[in-house]
Design a binder for these strands. Structure first.
Lengths: 137, 137
DNA sequence: ATACATATTTACGTTTACGTAAACATACAT
DNA sequence: ATGTATGTTTACGTAAACGTAAATATGTAT
């Protein structure tokens, strides 16, 4: 039951709202390697998943090199030697640490936005006399 | 009770493990504006807080321009006109959306790391016969 | 067959976020 | 006074992540 679903480069660029240039660049950097029919690139469902992972990494501020490392974590799960598997566990731990720092950063930033928003609303209320409060029931 | 605590540029570069070049660059880009004693820069506690916020933004993949916008959200809380305050609330909402997307991305990525780690451990167990299991009590 | 859209390669350009080096000023210790 | 450390400005360099343009190929509709 090999899934034969494929995508063109413009399919993917439209779906994910990126340029074809970017997709080819990711291939250049070794993050993708679609099949070819003649010259044209044919992307499999796996390729599409990889692209999704790349973009997710980018949204978290990871460089393309870091994204590639993440993809390699996936690929090499069963392949490498024992030492490589141990090393892989180490990389996973490192990655986790970064993610948890980001979680903390997000929480702090959310609280700061809360406080700015509140100060902002208070200021608006003062200017409005005391009309249009906070839509309290 | 004005807090007179100040920092030199190298104080801050050491504390946050960045180069003095970076700190001056942030000033160049309008993210910092320390006082001067003659030529040398004197950083206040407020400046230090701003630097902290900048670095937090960077860890979340924000550009320096975005970091500056975040700082401006802070600064203009009570200053602007009503329209500017409304606009500020809009910007806050936008920022929140980005943060929530990042939260989702982090959760997904954590789960993926979980699954990679598990596959990796299983593979290691097979190679070890069934020795050194998962240190179960 | 021809037009037209889509895809490809090649290569130079651009922005961001600094690194690095040079040349000079300031301050403090000895 | 002379190092030595720290700080400053100025300016050129660089890596990452694409943008953009040009020239060419391929496929598809009519």
């Amino acid at each position: 039951m090999t899934d034969e679903t494929t995508y063109s480069i413009s399919d993917l660029s439209q779906e994910f709202d990126i340029t074809t240039r970017s997709i080819r660049f990711y291939e250049d950097q070794g993050l993708l390697s679609p099949q070819r029919r003649g010259q044209t690139r044919i992307y499999s469902r796996q390729d599409r998943v990889r692209l999704k992972l790349i973009l997710r990494g980018k949204r978290l501020g990871f460089s393309l090199n870091e994204c590639r490392e993440l993809l390699e974590l996936y690929d090499h799960t069963t392949s490498g030697s024992e030492m490589q598997l141990q090393l892989l566990l180490t990389r996973i731990t490192e990655r986790r640490a970064v993610l948890e720092q980001q979680l903390k950063d997000i929480e702090l930033m959310q609280r700061e936005l809360d406080s700015v928003e509140q100060r902002c609303r208070e200021e608006l209320q003062e200017r409005h006399g005391q009309a249009t409060k906070d839509s309290v029931a």
